[in-house]
Design a protein around this nucleic acid. Structure first.
Lengths: 106, 106
DNA sequence: ACAATGTTTCTATATTTATGGAAATATAGA
DNA sequence: TCTATATTTCCATAAATATAGAAACATTGT
């Protein structure tokens, strides 16, 4: 993980609509949700939602896959864990404290 | 932790200079470093640095204390842990996975 | 009180980001 | 092929953020 990727990922969730989207996807699980469903739940206009989903995808924090007419978006747990590890890296150089625990990445 | 605070904290580290500052402070430990020292290490002009430190302080991710003429800035480990927990909250509702481990907060 | 050092505020400018309507594109079923 | 549905791209506008020099402010030692 380099600093530019970390900033990109952090920027992608440093915005209220996108953080809501991301957290929703994290909670929903690996299946994910179709874009329209996300927009409906969070009350976000389609074009705005599309913009935000692109930001999240581009940062690598969410994945997408097409299922017939729908595009399913889901959290990228591996990327999320990578980011958390990066933030806490060497955080306890002196005293040693517990490393961060990983969330599901299957 | 509410979403507005989370966005504020994420925004504060979603910027290259500030992420560098934050990570430096996380690695340095609870003692922290005087502003000038940070600026010297990271090659950031005083006024720019001051702006960034204010952002980080305002978000609550770093603390400051005055020691004679110097102002020491240090990572707020409790706030950092709170943010990490917020991001991973309910991340494994279905299957249950390890909760995040805390870093030093003494 | 004065000088030296450390830090912040003021200011202007440049750059990036967010928003959502309208139009375009893609997929699937009749 | 025509139609309905899902999603994205285009576009213009509005708002927020980053940068750093110069000036101001604070603290300490002489």
């Amino acid at each position: 993980m380099d600093i530019k990727s970390a900033v990109l990922q952090l920027s992608s969730i440093a915005q209220e609509a996108r953080l809501e989207i991301f957290r929703l996807l994290v909670q929903v699980g690996t299946e994910g949700l179709p874009a329209g469903n996300i927009g409906e739940r969070l009350q976000i206009p389609a074009s705005t939602l599309s913009f935000h989903l692109k930001e999240l995808s581009h940062a690598g924090l969410v994945n997408s896959r097409q299922v017939s007419r729908f595009i399913y978006y889901s959290a990228n747990y591996e990327a999320m864990n990578g980011l958390l590890v990066y933030l806490t890296e060497n955080c306890c150089a002196e005293e040693g404290c517990n490393p961060i625990a990983a969330c599901k990445t299957e």
